[in-house]
């Protein structure tokens, strides 16, 4: 089955990012195809130069960088979400696939299961 994780919350919202990644890796352990799309404030999770030490938390961007190790394709990132926050692709910690907002609903229909964060 094909799974899409839709990440739309800002990082450091309690344990949310960590627990979403735990769930994602459990799905991977079941030999399922997993892809990820970042929209809305979720795009902040991929920004460079995060200093989680100041919050005594784990680096969320570094966590997402490990996806490649598990054979997961580069994540989708919604263009408009980046533009609205004045974030450039070069501000992100990993290569991404860019997705126009108009295509998001269509993308979701390509997967058997869609999960949020």
């Amino acid at each position: 089955m094909r799974y899409l994780f839709v990440i739309r919350r800002a990082p450091y919202d309690g344990l949310r990012a960590i627990e979403t990644l735990d769930l994602l890796l459990t799905v991977v352990a079941f030999d399922q195809t997993v892809e990820v799309v970042f929209v809305d404030d979720g795009v902040w999770q991929l920004c460079r130069n995060q200093r989680p030490q100041a919050l005594a938390q784990r680096d969320v961007a570094a966590m997402w960088q490990t996806l490649e190790v598990y054979g997961i394709d580069p994540p989708w990132v919604e263009n408009e979400s980046l533009c609205e926050r004045r974030i450039k692709a070069s501000d992100l910690v990993l290569p991404v696939r860019s997705l126009p907002r108009a295509r998001l609903a269509g993308l979701m229909r390509e997967y058997d299961r869609v999960l949020g964060d």
Binding site: M1, L23, T26, V27, A29, F30, Q32, R113, L115, G116
Partner: peptide
């Protein structure tokens, strides 16, 4: 554990969060 969530998602028609 989380495996029980994934197992159920695999075997049922819909997941609602």
């Amino acid at each position: 554990g989380l495996a029980l969530l994934v197992e159920s998602v695999l075997e049922t028609d819909r997941l609602l969060v």
